[in-house]
Write a protein that binds this DNA or RNA. Structure first.
Lengths: 339, 339
DNA sequence: CTGAAAGCGCTTACAG
DNA sequence: CTGAAAGCGCTTACAG
């Protein structure tokens, strides 16, 4: 049972391959009777288009690369779901790679675009080497590279992100409204744009609320569970402990709380803790986590739509260049008035 | 800056395209001096192979589809990492799709193989329709379809899975050794092969240990957090509550514990609870979860290696057909002797 | 509305 | 060791 080609269909339908091709991709331009004959022939032969051939001919890979920092990070799964939904609607496939593996295999990221494996890429990694970044920036394909969640200050890549600063203000004000006046912040990684946006806005908002802010109340972290544990130790060691802690990610908050619980410190009774992201587990955590929700499905869908627009109509004038999506406060049980 | 082709390289190196192609794919067959000239020309022209062209010519997609039930499920991320590692070593790309999206887009799963989008597929979804399954089974491409974690009773697909039955015995005996004599089981989905393997073995082991087993002690679930919550309510409602509960997944166990904590029932003081899988969060959960660890990285790597062997040498006689990987007991804080 | 023909960029027998 | 040539399976101007 060899797979049949356009030729086979053409022979059975007694038309040219050109006509079969048209019937399949643009049925309106052929006559009713031709359309019927071709569909019949397609059915009889069990024809499936050969995408490798179509890709070569149309100079399109019909696929998009999604670059993750780390495949094992569950933060990204819902974003992938959103991306994949849009791509698959448009007949595109989703290729996945992690930065580390691309690097280890000796490839350059730009190769994916150059060698016709992908028509564009969505980068979810804020940790690209300057060298890699420079290479992307200089390439003519740069306009088919889009950042989601992360972005690059100074570079002109299209991007999708959430309202990091507004989310931070909402978080601080939630704690303030509960009555907290001494609020600490556990940051994400020092050199990360998201992390810095949240940290800067945290400081700005604390200042504008005229609250005290000791330098030790900004506790350095890196978005991970284990950094959250370490941050908790730092908080425990403080003489003058803030009554509330705003963590730059849910994972940080969970690690923070887990470590506190090992020291018999109760959340929210002894200290209020909140996160950022609203990952799936935030709701099931004990206590369920108060956090700032990012709509990750929408981030994924928006990123895919913006990229597809650039792929399909590359020279369009008014392409959306940046989307900043709203966030919302989700109040659960890890925050309460200070006691 | 148009991308250059083999032709361009050939022109610069003053050889034929055939020679350039050989130099790139099989350097040993060309002369030293040719090799130098060609590499030089490749550098000068910035040549990148066009994979669409190569794929068409070699009748290989150089990519593998990984099918997930649900992109948003973090259980799979480490498996993907393992798969991707092996694929990328061999110059293959990883395509990701979810069963639902394939279905919604009106495609058939087998199309991915038929239309030259993928050379093989790894299925991580145990929920395929009978119809879809039948179509895969009958297809000549069936030998390039491999199941991982999940498998299909009766069908002859190659598969990779962990020692579900042995893991279950280890779990039951861990609880038994702690002194528990009344042990409940929260199952996975009713029609799932993994779930049933674990349930059947649970019953067998309880029986062989000559322990009591009331019908209500087998609590139906479906691997999810929320099913775990419901199972906890069922357990709470029992007159004669088992002192230990073996859950068929970590997510179930976490939901179970979360719900108990809402009712002020302490784990492990009031009841011991353990899971299965050892997902990333098991360690950070409160209390850290005792569980049976599946090495998901190894599952992914093994699956990819087995599939690649079938793709590269399809007619090999002694291809490995099934791999069953070991599991191990990870003792943390959610289990203790009964009080 | 339809067909003949060129060509996308490679690889690979075949011949030398 | 190397080259000329065919061909993978499509799509798309061009001509009618």
């Amino acid at each position: 049972m060899k797979t049949s080609t356009l030729q086979d269909v053409a022979r059975v339908a007694k038309v040219s391959t050109a006509t079969v091709s048209r019937t399949l991709s643009n049925p309106d331009v052929v006559s009713e009777s031709t359309r019927r004959r071709v569909s019949e022939a397609v059915k009889v032969t069990g024809y499936r288009i050969n995408r490798a051939a179509r890709n070569l001919r149309t100079r399109r890979a019909h696929s998009v690369l999604v670059l993750l920092p780390d495949l094992a990070n569950p933060f990204f799964s819902t974003i992938l779901e959103g991306i994949s939904r849009i791509l698959s609607q448009q007949g595109y496939s989703m290729l996945i790679a992690s930065t580390k593996q691309v690097h280890d295999s000796g490839e350059r990221l730009i190769d994916y675009l150059d060698d016709a494996r992908a028509d564009g890429m969505i980068i979810l990694d804020g940790w690209l080497d300057d060298e890699v970044l420079q290479m992307l920036k200089d390439a003519p394909q740069a306009e088919r590279v889009l950042f989601a969640c992360e972005w690059v200050d100074g570079a002109n890549f299209p991007s999708v992100r959430c309202e990091n600063r507004q989310g931070t203000r909402i978080a601080v004000n939630h704690l303030y409204d509960l009555g907290h006046r001494k609020i600490a912040h556990v940051t994400g990684p020092e050199t990360n744009v998201i992390s810095n946006a949240r940290k800067d806005e945290f400081i700005a908002e604390i200042t504008s609320l005229k609250l005290a802010l000791e330098p030790e109340w900004i506790i350095p972290g890196d978005f991970s569970l284990s950094a959250g544990c370490q941050a908790a130790q730092a908080w425990i060691a403080l003489n003058d402990r803030p009554t509330a802690v705003f963590c730059a990610s849910d994972q940080l908050a969970m690690g923070f709380i887990a470590e506190l619980s090992r020291h018999d410190i109760k959340v929210p009774n002894d200290v209020s803790v909140m996160g950022f992201d609203d990952i799936d587990l935030a709701e099931q955590f004990i206590p369920p986590l108060t956090t700032i929700k990012q709509d990750r499905l929408m981030i994924g869908e928006t990123a895919a739509k913006m990229l597809m627009a650039r792929i399909v109509t590359p020279n369009e004038e008014n392409l959306e260049h940046a989307a900043v999506l709203p966030v919302s406060l989700v109040i659960r049980d890890s925050t309460s008035p200070p006691t």
